[in-house]
């Protein structure tokens, strides 16, 4: 990983990343945890404070940049990935992060999101998914479940939600991960992994909006239920979960199936082994779609991480190559081309 910290410099702490602005999210909001985990991780990502920029769109999550003592840009609805792209292409040496929500990124900003992934712009997108519009006071969002009753859908929504991980994978993002607001250690690890990744990194964080969609992720966070409802993805490890690590995932055809490791018919060796770096998208898609099947655990962790050249790197390289070939352009070269003539 690239690091630009001078060894002799004072080590930064979480406090160094706290801005002097009062945090104005509702008390109890999952956003607080995300802010805390970012602030805890950032001293270690290998960038100086002044070289980090947070860009956001509109929504509760998009207030995030105000609370980070880095450079920040609070943009307009949905456009954060496009603003961040311009910044990163212009200044590839910066560490550029996007804070966004499910409405901001999956709805109005959908186009920018998929194209950022496709181009593999080296920016990190952290999407706070609370499956609701918070700042506009509680309409259903593109990640709300079908049938959701909200102010704008009093009889239940009739459309289908996006599966963010699947969308990111489909758009060829080179890094796709998921975490939960109530899993601080895990979230820190995901943030660190995203920071280390060269290319578009997408982290979906399940975030509880205790005002408009409270309890959306309770089964995934409640002590009683979480062990049986969540599976933590670990590279090269068999897919085991459950209270007593007694369950596993096998693949039948293209479908994931939960098996009981104590039933005498299955052993750990039968289980699907997680391969983050698999070039084929099939495994990661199967994992992303596990949430479609009732009774299947929800995966958290890194679905996929592959290495491929970035867009911003490509642009910089072309400029370098052409400049080496043609020499640095001057005003004279620009204006006085071969097709001129003299009038005297």
């Amino acid at each position: 990983m690239e690091t630009n910290i001078d060894e002799k410099e004072v080590k930064l702490t979480a406090k160094d990343f706290k801005s002097d602005r009062d945090v104005r999210w509702c008390p109890g909001c999952g956003d607080y945890s995300i802010l805390a985990q970012v602030q805890r991780t950032f001293p270690n990502i290998g960038y100086k404070k002044e070289d980090i920029v947070w860009v956001s769109g509109i929504g509760c999550s998009s207030r995030f940049p105000y609370y980070m003592d880095t450079y920040g840009f609070h943009g307009i609805h949905g456009r954060a990935p496009a603003i961040a792209t311009g910044l990163k292409v212009a200044r590839p040496e910066l560490s550029v992060w996007v804070a966004t929500g499910d409405g901001d990124l999956m709805s109005i900003g959908g186009n920018h999101f998929i194209h950022t992934c496709r181009k593999n712009i080296d920016i990190k997108i952290v999407m706070f998914n609370n499956q609701i519009y918070g700042l506009t006071k509680g309409q259903y969002s593109p990640t709300s479940e079908k049938g959701k009753i909200t102010k704008s859908t009093p009889f239940g929504s009739v459309d289908y939600p996006f599966n963010p991980a699947s969308l990111a994978l489909g758009a060829e993002a080179s890094f796709v991960a998921r975490s939960i607001d109530r899993e601080p250690k895990h979230m820190q690890e995901m943030i660190m992994r995203a920071a280390e990744h060269k290319g578009t990194a997408f982290i979906e964080i399940y975030q509880n909006c205790n005002i408009f969609n409270d309890g959306a992720f309770t089964t995934l966070t409640d002590k009683e239920t979480k062990a049986d409802s969540v599976i933590t993805l670990e590279n090269k490890k068999p897919m085991i979960f459950g209270k007593d690590n007694n369950k596993g995932i096998i693949i039948e055809g293209f479908n994931p199936v939960v098996v009981d490791l104590n039933d005498g018919k299955h052993s750990v060796d039968d289980l699907l082994v997680h391969e983050e770096t698999d070039e084929s998208p099939i495994r990661s898609f199967i994992l992303a779609h596990m949430t479609d099947h009732p009774g299947m655990p929800t995966p958290i962790g890194v679905f996929k991480q592959i290495t491929k050249p970035t867009y911003d790197g490509g642009v910089a390289k072309q400029i370098k190559n052409v400049t080496e070939k043609k020499g640095e352009g001057t005003l004279k070269d620009l204006l006085y081309t071969p097709n001129t003539w003299e009038v005297s």
């Binding site: 920029v53 860009v55 840009f73 943009g75 307009i76 456009r79 496009a82 603003i83 961040a84 792209t85 311009g86 910044l87 990163k88 292409v89 212009a90 200044r91 910066l94 186009n111 920018h112 998929i114 194209h115 642009v315 400029i319 052409v322 400049t323 070939k325 043609k326 020499g327 640095e328 352009g329 620009l334």
Partner: peptide, 25 residues
Amino acid sequence: NFGVKTYQAEDEIAGIASAIGASFG
């Protein structure tokens, strides 16, 4: 070789939004 970066964006909005990002930079 004049250091010009051209970004063909996904739409008109991204065209200007990226320019705003670059200007911030």
